[in-house]
Amino acid sequence: MEVRTIKVFTTVDNINLHTQVVDMSMTYGQQFGPTYLDGADVTKIKPHNSHEGKTFYVLPNDDTLRVEAFEYYHTTDPSFLGRYMSALNHTKKWKYPQVNGLTSIKWADNNCYLATALLTLQQIELKFNPPALQDAYYRARAGEAANFCALILAYCNKTVGELGDVRETMSYLFQHANLDSCKRVLNVVCKTCGQQQTTLKGVEAVMYMGTLSYEQFKKGVQIPCTCGKQATKYLVQQESPFVMMSAPPAQYELKHGTFTCASEYTGNYQCGHYKHITSKETLYCIDGALLTKSSEYKGPITDVFYKENSYTTTIK
């Protein structure tokens, strides 16, 4: 009895394709271990004539594949690729409408935090270190965002349907971005203890939790000093293409032309909904596939993004 075979390709990165001759009487799992086709788990399936010449994702289970996976995804987590594939199996079914010149995501599976993050990423200057993220990001900007969303979920250790947080998501993504040249110098002034300067680099240099107003941050924000008295913390120097200011959701007025974009969060910790506000020729609110415009805006804002380049204080 002759062994019926077909020729397929296996890959971990969709760049390096490895030619395989597979036995049609055995499952993919018996031949390769966990195997995925377009995100779908085909591990328990036997090869079919229609699979001839198709590319299958496999887990990096030998040295060659491990090197290829690390170079593309910059992670050695053995569960990463499987999590990416199972997320992709959902995100490829989502709709990605162009809204006001940006790629958004039609609401499904509690994905409003991903839509808000995706919209924000198209408006701030950011370059990702893992080629996987950078490639998928370019495709997302062009309207094909399924891979990018699935990668975000995998890097953030999230599953489809789980509630997510924009600030946490951005923080994970910033860790995989090139923020080497970003720098922030802060000064804390206390009447009792004097003053202390701190220099922050990388992710810490672009994120701040405690106030939404970048102007206020430049002037000074009140913080408790270690001595128990009130101290003032203010920005001395900022070198970065953008800054992200966050605070627990509270009524906040966004003035046209003073910011790049913002995240609105309605609801409580267990259950809520994100919308995205962007400042173009007027203010726009993007909620999944829905767009509304207004000249002014007041609502429960939790993150505001500002364009920056270089700032030095005039406070002496």
Rank of each mutant, 00 (worst) to 15 (best):
Asp23Gly: 10
Val22Tyr: 04
Tyr96Leu: 07
Trp94Leu: 00
Leu88Lys: 05
Pro241Ser: 07
Thr199Asp: 08
Ser213Asp: 11
Glu168Pro: 09
Leu65Asp: 04
Gly101His: 05
Asp180Ile: 05
Cys182Trp: 09
Glu2Arg: 10
Phe32Asn: 08
Tyr28Ser: 10
Gly267Thr: 15
Ile124Ser: 04
Leu119Lys: 01
Ala247Met: 02
Lys95Trp: 07
Thr75Asp: 08
Leu153Cys: 08
His176Glu: 06
Asp77Pro: 03
Tyr208Ser: 04
Glu239Gly: 01
Ala289Arg: 02
Glu308Asp: 03
Lys316Ser: 15
Leu163Thr: 13
Leu212Pro: 02
Ala146Thr: 04
Met209Pro: 07
Thr43Ser: 13
Lys229Gln: 13
Tyr214Thr: 00
Leu291Asp: 09
Ala142Lys: 14
Val160Asp: 02
Pro47Gly: 08
Tyr252Thr: 07
Asn178Leu: 04
Leu186Glu: 15
Asp62Met: 04
His74Glu: 08
Arg167Thr: 06
Ala231Ile: 00
Phe148Cys: 01
His74Thr: 01
Ser295Glu: 15
Lys293Gly: 05
Glu168Tyr: 15
Asn110Trp: 04
Trp94Ile: 06
Ser240Asn: 01
Leu88Pro: 06
Gly164Tyr: 02
Asp13Ala: 09
Ala40Tyr: 12
Asn187Cys: 14
Phe128Leu: 05
Val8Tyr: 04
Ser104Thr: 14
Phe56His: 04
Thr314Leu: 15
Pro97Met: 00
Gln175Gly: 10
Asp109Ser: 03
Pro241Asp: 05
Tyr28Glu: 10
Asp165Leu: 05
Gly288Gln: 00
Arg139Ile: 08
Thr103Cys: 06
Gly299Val: 08
Gly161Tyr: 05
Lys280Trp: 01
Leu151Val: 01
Pro78Phe: 10
Leu102Glu: 02
Thr169Ile: 13
Ser263Arg: 02
Phe128Asp: 05
Ile301Arg: 05
Thr11Ala: 07
Tyr57His: 11
Val160Cys: 10
Cys149Arg: 06
Pro47Asp: 05
Ala136Val: 03
Tyr274Arg: 00
Lys183Val: 08
Arg141Asn: 10
Lys44Asn: 14
Glu125Gly: 06
Lys293Ser: 12
Pro60Gln: 00
Leu37Lys: 09
Asn178Gly: 06
Gln230Ile: 14
Glu239Met: 08
Tyr274Glu: 07
Gln196Met: 10
Gly210Tyr: 00
Val189Tyr: 09
Ser171Glu: 12
Glu162Cys: 00
Tyr28Gly: 07
Gln195Phe: 07
Ala87Cys: 12
Val304Asn: 07
Cys190Asn: 04
Ser240Glu: 02
Pro60His: 03
Cys149Asp: 01
Trp94Ala: 02
Cys193Ala: 02
Thr35Phe: 01
Tyr137Trp: 05
Gly228His: 00
Lys275Trp: 03
Tyr57Ser: 05
Glu204Tyr: 09
Thr103Leu: 04
Lys316Tyr: 15
Tyr172Gly: 13
Leu254Lys: 01
Thr169Met: 08
Leu119Ala: 13
Leu102Cys: 03
Phe174Tyr: 06
Gly210Met: 06
Asn268Trp: 10
Pro248Ala: 10
Ala140Ser: 09
Leu291Trp: 15
Pro224Gly: 09
Val22Asp: 01
Met85Thr: 04
Pro249Gln: 00
His176Phe: 12
Asp41Cys: 11
Ile223Phe: 13
Thr76Cys: 14
Ile15Asp: 13
Thr314Ser: 15
Ala136Met: 05
Gln237His: 15
Cys193Phe: 01
Pro78Val: 02
Thr116Trp: 00
His90Ala: 11
Val221Gln: 03
Glu144Leu: 03
Val304Gln: 02
Ser310Glu: 15
Thr11Glu: 11
Thr266Met: 09
Phe80Ile: 01
Val206Lys: 00
Lys183Asn: 07
Asp13Asn: 00
Lys219Ile: 05
Ala154Phe: 03
Thr5Leu: 09
Pro249Phe: 06
Val203Arg: 12
Tyr297Phe: 06
Leu126Val: 14
Lys255Gln: 06
Ser213Pro: 04
Gly257Ala: 08
Ala142Leu: 12
Asp135Ser: 10
Val206Ala: 03
Lys93Glu: 12
Arg167Cys: 02
Thr313Gln: 15
Pro60Phe: 10
Cys193Lys: 03
Leu102Asn: 10
Ala231Val: 06
Gln134His: 12
Ser279Trp: 05
Asn147Asp: 13
Thr258Phe: 02
Ser50Arg: 10
Phe56Ile: 14
Leu291Ile: 13
Thr282Asp: 12
Ala289Pro: 05
Thr76Ser: 13
Pro249Asn: 01
Phe32Gln: 13
Cys225Val: 03
His74Ser: 03
Arg141His: 07
Ser263Asp: 11
Glu168Phe: 14
Asp13Thr: 08
Gly272Phe: 04
Tyr84Glu: 01
Gly101Met: 09
Asn157Ala: 03
Asn309Pro: 14
Cys149Asn: 00
Thr232Asn: 03
Leu65Arg: 12
Ile105His: 06
Gln30Phe: 06
Asp180Arg: 07
Thr260Met: 15
Lys201Asn: 12
Pro224Ser: 13
Thr278Trp: 03
Gly272Asp: 02
Val22Met: 11
Gly210Cys: 00
Ala247Phe: 00
Ile315Phe: 15
Asp109His: 11
Thr64Asp: 15
Ser86Glu: 15
Lys298Val: 14
Val21Ile: 15
Thr169His: 11
Ser240Tyr: 04
Gln196Gly: 03
Asn178Val: 06
Thr19Ile: 11
Lys201Cys: 10
Gly194Gln: 01
Lys95Val: 14
Phe217Gly: 03
Lys307Met: 11
Pro224Tyr: 09
Tyr73Ala: 04
Lys54Ile: 13
Asn111Asp: 10
Leu102Thr: 15
Leu59Ile: 14
Asn147Gln: 14
Val236Pro: 02
Met207Lys: 08
Gln175Cys: 03
Ser279Pro: 01
Met85Lys: 07
Ala145Tyr: 01
Val185Ser: 05
Asp62Thr: 12
Leu254Arg: 02
Ala87Lys: 07
Arg184Val: 01
Met85Trp: 12
Glu204Thr: 06
Phe217Gln: 06
Phe148Leu: 13
Arg83Pro: 02
Asn61Asp: 13
Asn178Pro: 05
Lys307Thr: 10
Thr91Lys: 04
Gly33Trp: 05
Met170Phe: 03
Phe305Pro: 01
Pro248Met: 09
Leu179Ala: 00
Tyr155Glu: 04
Asn89Glu: 15
Lys275Gln: 06
Ala87Trp: 09
His18Thr: 09
Pro47Cys: 06
Cys271Arg: 13
Lys44Ile: 10
Pro300Gly: 03
Gln98Asp: 12
Thr27Trp: 15
Val22Ile: 09
Tyr138Glu: 15
Glu168Gly: 15
